[in-house]
Computed example of a mutant assay.
Amino acid sequence: MNSDLNVALKAARKGVETIKSYRNKKLNTREKGFHDLVTDADIATEKEILSVIREHCPDDSILAEETLATHSLTDNRTWIVDPIDGTTNFAHDFPIYCVSVALWEHRQPKTAVVIEVNRNEEFTAEAGLGAFLNGKAIQVSATDNPRDAFIATGFPYNDLSLIDSYLKLFRLFMDELQGIRRPGAATYDLCCVAAGRFDGFFEYSLQPWDVAAASLIIKEAGGAVTNWMGEDNWLFGERLVAGNNRIHQHLLKRIIEYIPPEFRQNVDIAS
């Protein structure tokens, strides 16, 4: 492991410790947006993660969900942090939520760590060096027939503009795929694609901290990640489709068929 991965692991593990310290406490919860929860645990966890990053990398930039959110990226080394992906799950004691820490440089992902708190699953990747789960190499599935495909998605909660088209697409996938799940944490969904548990994934209304780490893990596991136009500009685009190469192409084809062009475009391409 290089020093960047060590820093990412140290920061993410510190985040996990903080989350666990809030499990038996009464949470202070508020809506920062439509159906978009934030708790005092999110704020405290982000503070601890950032303290580790700043200690070791004081000159690096930071993009973090709760305190340093932005929709732009430079060539500088930038840490992209989601303290709790799956806050609604966490607030309701539903056991799927993650810490996500990524380092980007020259507008490309370099280092990634995602930890699913309850199962203590540590997904890691470094650009060009492969993807790992608890230290063991992982790769995307070999499923090539859509009828055998098991995929994940996320139900839109703060942007209902695509809901009618989305439901038509969802209905189609229910008919032609083996199964669909919605765990409620996009970061974890994507890591499960990397580990070969899911064959594919699609969602919209995603934010950069939802995908910055896990998408590198998928790529290093041999998978594909694009926006809904099949392009590489997905970090700030809010629309993402991923999977092994065959299932990714099938999902992308159906999205292009069922989602009107104006809704397939990236929302923000500031990256």
Rank of each mutant, 00 (worst) to 15 (best):
L73G: 10
Q139R: 15
F150C: 09
A142S: 15
V99C: 01
V117R: 01
L160V: 10
T88D: 10
G128N: 06
F132P: 03
V117S: 02
D93G: 09
E121R: 06
T87P: 05
I138S: 03
R77F: 08
V140H: 09
T124V: 04
R77L: 11
F90I: 02
F94L: 13
G86V: 00
L133F: 05
G128M: 06
V140F: 08
Y97I: 00
E122G: 04
L129M: 15
S100D: 04
T143F: 09
I138A: 07
A127T: 15
G154Y: 13
N158R: 14
A131F: 07
F94Y: 15
A127R: 15
D93C: 10
T78V: 05
P156N: 05
Y157F: 14
V117G: 04
Y97W: 11
S165V: 08
E105C: 11
Y97G: 00
L162R: 15
I163L: 11
P146K: 11
F155D: 12
R119F: 09
Y97V: 00
W79Y: 08
D148W: 11
I151N: 09
V81Y: 03
Q108R: 14
F94V: 14
I163W: 10
S141T: 05
E122T: 14
E116N: 01
E105P: 06
N120Y: 02
T153N: 09
G130D: 08
H92W: 10
F150A: 07
P156C: 06
E105A: 10
T88F: 06
L73A: 07
T78D: 10
V101A: 01
L103Q: 06
N89G: 01
D148I: 07
T88W: 05
L73V: 08
R77N: 11
T111V: 13
D159Y: 12
L160T: 12
Q139K: 15
F123A: 00
T74S: 15
T124H: 02
T74N: 10
L73W: 07
F155V: 13
P146M: 06
L162M: 13
S161N: 10
L103H: 03
Y97R: 01
K136T: 12
W79A: 06
P156K: 07
D93S: 14
L129V: 13
Y157D: 12
I163G: 08
G135I: 04
V113S: 05
V101L: 02
R119N: 14
L162D: 14
F123T: 01
G128S: 10
I138M: 03
P109V: 05
Y166R: 04
G135R: 04
A102L: 03
L133E: 05
E121W: 13
V113K: 03
F123C: 02
I84E: 02
P95M: 06
N134H: 06
E116Y: 00
L129D: 14
E122P: 03
P146Q: 08
N76E: 15
P83F: 04
T143N: 06
F94S: 11
A127I: 13
I151Y: 09
I84A: 03
K110F: 13
A152T: 09
D93W: 09
K110D: 13
L73Q: 09
E116W: 00
G86Q: 01
N120D: 15
R77H: 08
D93H: 14
F94T: 13
V99E: 01
S72P: 08
R77C: 11
R147Y: 11
E126V: 13
G86Y: 00
